[in-house]
């Protein structure tokens, strides 16, 4: 086979590289859709407003008792209202345990509270100013 040379080997190698490149870009395109979806779902699933809301009412109810505006029995009613309504209407397990101020040793109120709606779990230890 006179006249046959092997110059084309580089060209075939380039062909391979090009096809791998295309394959890689296809994988990138495929994954970019999934990345966007999981990000959006993560934002949607996080119950930001629910946590803020229940956080707010827990602090208000504990501080009512802590400042002497309501009795222990009235505080217990509020505690039951918050935990039971959270479970039935918000599908979230909420519980909180306050540590009352002990003057003159310590004038602060502390609250250990928990929030769990089955997807997101949130715990906080709150200290009054």
């Amino acid at each position: 086979m006179a006249g046959l040379n092997e110059d084309a080997q580089w060209i075939v190698l380039m062909g391979f590289l090009v096809s791998f490149g295309l394959f890689f870009l296809g994988m990138l395109l495929n994954q970019s859709v999934i990345v966007g979806q999981t990000t959006a779902e993560g934002v949607l699933d996080f119950p930001k407003n629910d946590i803020r809301d229940v956080n707010d009412v827990i602090i208000r109810s504990v501080m009512l008792k802590s400042t002497g505006n309501i009795t222990q029995g009235q505080y217990q009613t509020l505690h039951d209202d918050i935990t039971i309504i959270s479970l039935s209407r918000k599908k979230a397990v909420v519980d909180f345990t306050p540590t009352w101020p002990n003057p003159p040793l310590d004038n602060h109120t502390y609250i250990q509270y928990h929030y769990n709606n089955g997807v997101t779990e949130y715990n906080e230890y709150w200290t009054s100013s």
């Binding site: 490149g21 295309l22 870009l25 395109l29 970019s32 859709v33 979806q37």
Partner: peptide, 19 residues
């Protein structure tokens, strides 16, 4: 390849998902 790359770059900021 260059066309596809340019297309990907332009679209990267607006990936539309069901979310």
């Amino acid at each position: 390849i260059m066309l596809v790359s340019a297309y990907l770059v332009v679209n990267a900021t607006s990936v539309y998902t069901p979310g």
